[in-house]
Structures are given as structure tokens and as C-alpha cells.
Amino acid sequence: MSHHIVQADNLHYTYPDGTVGLNKINFKIHHGESVALVGSNGAGKSTLLLHLIGSLAPTDGDIRIGDFPLNKKNLKLVRRSVGMVFQDPDDQLFMPTVFDDVAFGPINLGIPEKEVEQRVMDSLETVGVPHLIRRSPHKLSGGEKRAVAIATVLATTPDILIMDEPSSNLDPSSRRRLINLLKTFTHTKIIATHDLDMALEVCSRTIILDRGQIVADGLTKELFIDENLLKTSGLEKPLTMQRCPVCSNYSKI
């Protein structure tokens, strides 16, 4: 399975002002894997994601996506196989209606009109919001916006899904819907998040970043037990793995 791999080789990035963004990043993500990218604020999650979609070019080191090294020449090719869901859906939904927005990618890929419409419907149905098709993005709720944003990416049929904080700003039930949805995807997934409970449910593997470096890379369940590791990386055990304060108090009495 050499298809759809995402590989970083000794990745190094320094911001123009001299701050080190990424330092000796090495990983290999295989086809169909779900990987959570966690770490405190400023640990380098977003910087890493921007590298994976070719928006930032590494100061040193290489990225390979699928069969291609990521460089200027391959950028367009690579972007066809990678779908990125941005943190702020308002950045992603820029067209006048939901339909136009979801159709934007497929049209750019040169897909025939009839098929575009089918794809738009399919994508919206996958995320469970086909009824929003004629609405304007500015009139959607936060959860609806997120769902549509995911649909816009699904419509381009990417092999690899990259998501930046997909569960942020969602109410609990929208978040639950999102998690259930993500679980059904068979794509290779890279999810940058602070929501460790979601990471626990959706991603079998986790990469912990701290100050631009990978401090741990392994099975989510195993990493999240290591309280010391979590603490030094500015994290905390997922709530579902902590003892319930109500029940434990109750048992004490």
C-alpha cells in the first residue's frame, strides 16, 4: 500500500523572523490511517498542516504525498488528492450559495455539469444536509457551516482529508454528529485538534507536537494514558478517560 501515504522527512521550517516553526519532523502515515495531531497552542500543528497542502514550503527536508514529492511542480496534482477543511468555515465557504460552493471544486476539476450536480447532492447527503442546498452560507448555523465545509471538500473526492480543529465552536450535538460522520470516512485522515476525546474516538494513532517537534507518535489509547507526557506537552487526559467526579464522590459517601 504505497498509495496515499503522507510522509515527512526531516522537515524543518523557520519563519521569516527567525522563529523555529518545525524542527526535524519525521513521520509516515499510511493509506486509510486516522491520525490526530495534538499539542498545545503554538506547538506547530497549523504550520505542519500548511506544509501538507503546500502553502508553506519547508526550509529543509521533504514531504511526499502519494507517489509525489511535494514541490511547486506537483502542487496542483497533490492538491487533487488532498482535501483540507479549514478551521473557520467562513474562509472556506466563499460562494453565494451552498450549491455553488460545493460545486466549486468539481467544476475546477473539469467534471461535466450533470456529474457536478450529482456530486454536490452526494456530498451534501453524506454530511446530512441536503436541504441546505439553496441557502446562503451566511445564514447557516455554526454546525451547518462545518458540515457544508466538509461537503465542499468531499465533492473533490480527495484520498487524504486534512482537518484543522473540526470540532471547535460546535455545540455538543453537532460535535457528536461530526464525530459519527468522521468515523464513517475511509479516507486517510489527519486531524489537528485540541479535542482529545474526539481524537480518542476517531483516530487510532496520535502524533504529539511540542514546540515544533514530535514528542510522541503512537497508538492514541497508549499515549493518552501517559499523564506525564500529556502534562509536559501542555495537554490533559481526555475527559472520557478521567474518573467521573459525580460518580466517584458518590461512591465515597
Binding site: I53, S55, K76, R79, R80, V82, G83, M84, F86, D88, D91, Q92, F94, M95, D100, A103, F104, G105, I107, N108, L109, E113, V116, E117, T152, V153, T156
Partner: peptide
């Protein structure tokens, strides 16, 4: 960021709409 989001979905300078 919007431009980036557009590029990620194959934007190459032209916006078309099906209507």
C-alpha cells in the same frame, strides 16, 4: 486563507458557476 481554500479546491484564476 480564502485564497488558500480556493487553491485547495483547484482554483486557477477563474470562477465558474453552474446556474
Amino acid at each position: 486563507r480564502i485564497h488558500l481554500a480556493m487553491c485547495c479546491r483547484g482554483f486557477e484564476g477563474d470562477i465558474q458557476m453552474l446556474r
